[in-house]
Amino acid sequence: MPLGYLSASPSQQSSQFTALPELPTLAVVLRARRRKLERNFIRFEEWLIRGLNLAFKCLKCGKCCRELVIPIVLSDIELWVKSGRLDLLTYVTEREARGWARRLGLEHYFTFVMRRGGCPFYRGGLCSIYRLRPIACRLFPFAYSPLGITFHPWAERNCMGIGIGEPLNDDELREIELLAKTMLRELLALPYYSTFIKELLMEVRGPSKALPPGEADA
């Protein structure tokens, strides 16, 4: 009922009612909205089922290694330093934040210098630093969302290994959750330790060498 209807004159009441949609039209609108709601619910149900069946098997196609620009966080660098692989730092560069990184509130982030073939450590169809690969690589194709672990949006569109193999067991799921939360926490804290990483990279390369430019943007 329109506001002011009770205080309006009979003629005004009549004119206000004529402005309302006719009942058949209203029924059509309600049916359309119900169908839209049902479609959205089906999409949500499909997404939830995928989340509950996190099955994945790497087919070693190398598409992610060739196309994705992955973030490098403090835990990655700590692992390389402890493993005596300071040479890996010479492949690290700082990149302007775009897309997901900008949405996290970052202005810059660290990643590998990408070559025409993708990741500099993707050689002969294999990862040459597999044991020391960054958290982002160990986490892929999974991602962390407010509802829990799900598949990375890029992986859902491009990874043929999704849905193949056995779903994650409880131990694997806990490990993935730990990796995802660690990466998110360290990305959010990046402004507080980025200067340290820059100084470390400069020390490894020498004072006369600047950070190498990247060839692709995320």
Score class of each variant (00 low, 15 high):
12 Q>H: 12
12 Q>S: 10
13 Q>Y: 02
13 Q>H: 03
13 Q>T: 03
14 S>W: 11
14 S>T: 09
15 S>A: 12
15 S>K: 11
15 S>F: 12
16 Q>L: 15
16 Q>I: 11
16 Q>Y: 10
16 Q>S: 12
16 Q>V: 08
17 F>K: 04
17 F>L: 11
18 T>W: 10
19 A>W: 08
19 A>L: 13
20 L>K: 06
20 L>G: 10
21 P>I: 07
21 P>M: 02
21 P>Y: 00
21 P>F: 02
22 E>G: 12
22 E>T: 09
22 E>P: 04
22 E>M: 09
23 L>E: 05
23 L>N: 05
23 L>D: 10
23 L>M: 02
24 P>H: 00
24 P>E: 04
26 L>R: 07
26 L>G: 08
26 L>H: 02
26 L>F: 07
26 L>K: 03
27 A>K: 10
27 A>W: 07
27 A>I: 05
28 V>Q: 09
28 V>E: 09
29 V>S: 09
29 V>E: 04
30 L>K: 10
31 R>D: 05
34 R>S: 08
34 R>W: 03
34 R>P: 03
34 R>D: 01
34 R>H: 07
35 R>I: 12
35 R>Y: 10
35 R>V: 14
36 K>G: 06
36 K>E: 05
37 L>W: 10
38 E>M: 11
39 R>W: 01
39 R>N: 11
39 R>F: 02
40 N>P: 05
41 F>M: 14
42 I>D: 14
43 R>C: 14
43 R>Y: 07
43 R>T: 10
43 R>P: 09
47 W>I: 12
47 W>P: 12
48 L>E: 15
48 L>M: 14
48 L>R: 15
48 L>G: 13
49 I>R: 14
50 R>I: 13
50 R>W: 15
50 R>Y: 14
52 L>C: 15
52 L>I: 14
52 L>V: 13
53 N>G: 07
54 L>H: 12
54 L>C: 11
54 L>W: 12
55 A>T: 11
55 A>N: 09
55 A>Y: 12
55 A>V: 14
56 F>L: 11
56 F>A: 06
56 F>Y: 14
56 F>M: 09
57 K>Q: 11
58 C>D: 14
58 C>F: 05
58 C>N: 08
58 C>R: 03
59 L>P: 11
60 K>D: 13
60 K>S: 12
60 K>W: 05
61 C>E: 11
61 C>R: 06
62 G>H: 05
63 K>C: 02
63 K>V: 04
63 K>H: 04
64 C>R: 03
65 C>I: 04
66 R>G: 01
66 R>D: 00
66 R>T: 06
66 R>F: 00
68 L>W: 02
68 L>C: 02
69 V>P: 08
69 V>N: 01
70 I>C: 04
70 I>Q: 06
72 I>Q: 01
73 V>P: 04
73 V>R: 05
73 V>A: 00
73 V>S: 03
74 L>P: 01
75 S>F: 01
75 S>K: 01
76 D>R: 00
76 D>K: 00
77 I>N: 02
77 I>C: 07
77 I>H: 02
78 E>D: 07
78 E>F: 01
79 L>K: 00
